[in-house]
Design a binder for these strands. Structure first.
Lengths: 142, 142
DNA sequence: CTGTATGGTTGACGCTGTCAACCATTTGAT
DNA sequence: ATCAAATGGTTGACAGCGTCAACCATACAG
């Protein structure tokens, strides 16, 4: 198989992204959670009294997009909207216990898959690989 | 920032996927090419006389989805459909010179971004990191 | 030559996110 | 106190993408 046009490195990253991304084998992250929904849920879990717009900002959505994602999550019972009593315009989005559950179980599946993948790597250099991934993510944030 | 619920490793991978994936800063890979379109174009470039269904198979689409992606690519001028003369039912999808161009330029952008990222990382051993990423992608294929 | 399998296309549909207009609340200037 | 921005959120209309099922055309086996 003589791959052309695209460098090995690009292709490697693309394949990794594809595998773990929204359209990989697990197009949905969990039972009934799309990738953006999962990401939003994660943000909500980690933001105290998260306003709707924050989510949009963090994930690169419009505020109306954010509203819609939050509504979906709410309908699924993973999230609750509570009017802020400091500012009547703001909706604090809070994760529910069910939301916590689904987040935890998704994380578990994700982690397991990563471990499984790392175990199959040639040099068995899993710890090294983990460090690399974390460093990469950190470098992305800067 | 005390991140809860999700393990560091999961989060790292998620962030990487997000950054390089369809909804990262570059939601579109190139000018007017969505992520799936880009992937399809890559497959087409690397498959001699690629039937439409192949693309669907390789990317996890229905055959009708594949038709639609190919049509989009054709409308953009990156691809051409040619009726096979060995089997009148089959459409060979072939990349055009413009398609090659867009693929090359996208690869260049992608590569540059990776290099840039690696340069910012604490471990300056770029070749080693590249090797690790390629190993990871290889492990995915098995 | 007839029935079946296979490749591809198309119409109707559902889901997701954007845009723009909108409402409600807050805030600042007067 | 009042009124005009500014800000947070929601909603209707819309477009893009992919699925499903029905369909057409070609190939092939008996």
């Amino acid at each position: 198989m003589n791959k052309r046009k695209i460098s090995d490195l690009s292709r490697a990253l693309i394949e990794i992204v594809r595998h773990f991304g929204p359209k990989g084998p697990n197009g949905e992250c969990c039972e009934n959670l799309s990738m953006p929904e999962f990401l939003a849920l994660d943000k909500i879990a980690n933001t105290e009294d998260c306003p709707v717009q924050n989510i949009g900002q963090l994930l690169g959505f419009t505020k109306s997009g954010a509203t819609r994602i939050v509504n979906r999550l709410e309908k699924k019972g993973y999230v609750q909207k509570i009017k802020s009593f400091e500012d009547g315009r703001v909706c604090c989005v809070v994760i529910t216990p069910q939301g916590e559950n689904v987040l935890a179980s998704t994380d578990e599946r994700y982690s397991k898959e990563i471990e499984h993948l790392l175990a199959r790597m040639p040099d068995k250099n899993a710890p090294h690989m983990k460090a690399l991934l974390k460093d990469m993510a950190r470098a992305l944030r800067d």
